[in-house]
Design a protein around this nucleic acid. Structure first.
Length: 581
RNA sequence: GCCGACGUAGCUCAGCUGGUAGAGCAACUGAUUUGUAAUCAGUAGGUCACCGGUUCGAUCCCGGUCGUCGGCUCCA
């Protein structure tokens, strides 16, 4: 165990999991002599151990390791703590060939280190542990993966085994059920099943094709986004997908962001670059004319599509892609306006995300990193404004010291989805760098030229990523205001086709996404398919409904809602859409 | 990029130690006019990711490329 991973306040669960990691390491060394141990901490979902194993482990090996672990647990060997001199520890681990432990010992201050033993197994570790291996009642190994020694890609790649452990068998079962639940919600799986999007696997990894159904959802999100921004005093703009490389030299991206940019393309002897960011364009728009202090803040927003080079191994469905659309905006304001602007952004963000059912947030204030630009007083002023905005809104937040961007401090906001996972989408960043690089101004009350402060902000982050999160959040069952098909009409026989066609047309004219299933299938079949397509309203129409000018509503969530007149149904439907529930 | 696994029909997946491929669903055709989660019958559909090698013969073995997945590193 790695000394530095220990903390004073070690919970009983962490203690159990950390002990499980020891038992796993013991089992691996038993099965694969010559295995060298690196580090093996408890983590939020369980534990892992990084080790240098003589051969590559497979999924089947995990079962064997589990079996040996069970034997160690059954032997109920006590965990014994021992404090030894560093020299003794070095000798011990040298004899055992534990090269990584020797490296760790060398980095530990002081003269002594602690060891934890159970059976014949010894590990460098501060503990604490459970009393004996028998306390490990419910564990499971989950996966093997590569991991660099000390997390540095220049170092050797070790093998990491992930596992989890709980005090009770039911808790382990519950956790495994939750993993299966998360798998069932996987946006990549649902995206295919519901025909929402696809990737161009061969011709463009990390590039997304939005299919008609996905595009309908996106369109609805975009309409809502635009309406909210107009209401909040934003001007919406459009900017090109590329510009001369010079623009990104001015902005500093060539210096600071090069590894994420695609290679430039040459046009008539000039290098052009596909945009990785929207901000330089928005600055150009701001700077296209002189601004008075009176017209600030200027808020420019855009659903701007950017392209960033991401290493092939990191691409992941919609959550990590190479081309994506940011719901980007840049606010140019006076220093005295900064805090209020940030407050407005925070309020707007929470209202916007709340509409999608995200009601729980975690906020993080990131302060000045080691490598940064800008004066002390600017950092001071901006950090104070961000903190002041959080406090004025009565929002709880954590401080991430030194995690700010090089050009300014920021607030990140994470949302909690239906199954309790946290996702980072929104960000509010103060930027001292670009206003200077682009030399932008406003004219102050006294006629002098002053430098505005610039704020970058996004509510969703990227539409692709946000869509992926939404799919998982709703498990593909979008609320009716977002659903690609809001209502599907199901005629019982083709005698009702004309009547149904008239109703569908009436709904479409009101902007409702309605469709009909005219196939000559039994009603049970049509319902099953509509239900699997997660369509919120199934509207059954047979001879009786037709004769009475009625429809029979079946809700995706609540089942058969009974018959009603078409006019009543229309009102019901519109009300449900408007509440955005 | 790195470590490992994987890539078979539109989808989900079979295919033992090498003898040129199969199921269910979907699609298509016909019959069925059906009342709240699957009507029946038939038809068609695959250079087994791609390139090369070994072999009399490769979906299967070997090498390379591309991609996907689980992680590492990095991040919206």
């Amino acid at each position: 165990m790695f000394e530095e991973d220990q903390t004073e306040n070690y919970s009983p669960l962490e203690r159990l999991r950390h002990s499980s990691a020891h038992v796993m390491a013991d089992a691996v060394q038993t099965l694969f002599p010559g295995t060298k141990l690196a580090i093996g901490p408890a983590i939020e979902t369980g534990f892992y151990y990084d080790m240098d194993v003589p051969r590559t482990l497979t999924q089947e090996d995990l079962e064997k390791i589990e079996a040996v672990m069970q034997q160690i647990v059954d032997r109920n060997e006590p965990f014994v703590r021992e404090e030894v001199s560093k020299a003794d520890a070095v000798e011990l681990f040298k004899k055992r060939g534990e090269d990584y432990k020797l490296e760790i010992i060398a980095a530990i201050p002081g003269d002594t280190v602690t060891l934890f033993k159970h059976g014949n197994f010894v590990d460098l570790c501060r503990g604490p542990h459970v009393e004996a291996t028998g306390k490990i009642a419910a564990f499971k190994l989950l996966s093997v993966a590569g991991a660099y020694w000390r997390g540095d890609e220049k170092n050797k790649m070790l093998q990491r085994i992930y596992g989890t452990a709980f005090p009770e068998k039911q808790q382990l079962e519950a956790y495994l059920t939750q993993l299966r639940e998360a798998e069932a919600r996987d946006h990549r799986k649902l995206g295919k099943e519901l025909d929402l999007f696809s990737m161009m696997e061969d011709e463009g990894p990390g590039l997304i094709l939005w299919h008609p159904k996905g595009a309908r959802v996106r369109g609805t999100i975009e309409d809502f986004w635009r309406a909210e921004h107009r209401r909040e005093g934003y001007e919406l703009v459009y900017t090109p997908h590329m510009a001369k490389l010079d623009l990104w030299k001015t902005s500093g991206h060539v210096d600071f962001y090069k590894e994420n940019m695609f290679s430039p393309m040459e046009v008539e002897g000039q290098d052009y670059e596909i945009k990785p960011m929207n901000c330089p364009f928005h600055i150009r728009i701001y700077n296209s004319r002189m601004h008075s202090y009176r017209e600030l803040p200027v808020r420019l927003g855009e659903l701007g599509t950017v392209y960033r080079f991401e290493r092939s191994g990191v691409l992941h469905g919609l959550l990590r892609v190479r081309g994506f659309t940011q719901d980007d905006a840049h606010i140019f304001c006076r220093p005295d306006q900064l805090q209020l602007e940030v407050e407005q952004v925070l309020k707007m963000t929470m209202r916007f995300l709340g509409t999608f059912g995200f009601k729980e947030f975690e906020l993080f204030l990131s302060t000045r990193p080691e490598k940064s630009v800008g004066s002390d007083e600017n950092w001071e002023l901006a950090t104070k404004a961000l903190r002041g905005a959080l406090e004025a809104q009565g929002l709880a937040f954590k401080v991430d010291p030194g995690e700010g961007v090089f050009y300014g401090p920021k607030i990140d906001l994470k949302i909690k989805d239906t199954i309790g996972r946290m996702w980072q989408c929104s960000t509010v960043q103060v930027d001292f760098n670009n206003p200077e690089r682009f030399n932008i101004h406003y004219v102050a009350e006294d006629g002098s030229r002053q430098r505005p402060i610039m704020v970058h902000r996004a509510l969703m982050g990227s539409l692709e990523r946000f869509f992926g999160i939404l799919i998982e959040h709703f498990a593909g069952a979008f609320p009716i205001w977002l659903a690609p098909v809001q209502a599907i009409f199901l005629p019982i026989t083709d005698q009702q086709n004309d009547y149904v066609a008239g109703l569908v047309t009436a709904l479409k004219e009101k902007g409702i996404r309605a469709e009909a299933d005219y196939r000559k299938e039994k009603i049970g079949h049509k319902i099953r398919e509509a239900q699997l397509a997660k369509i919120p309203h199934m509207v059954v129409v047979g001879g009786k409904e037709q004769a009475a000018g009625q429809v029979s509503l079946r809700s995706r969530r609540e089942g058969d809602k009974g018959v009603m007149s078409f006019d009543d149904y229309l009102k019901y439907l519109q009300a449900e859409i408007e509440t955005r529930m």
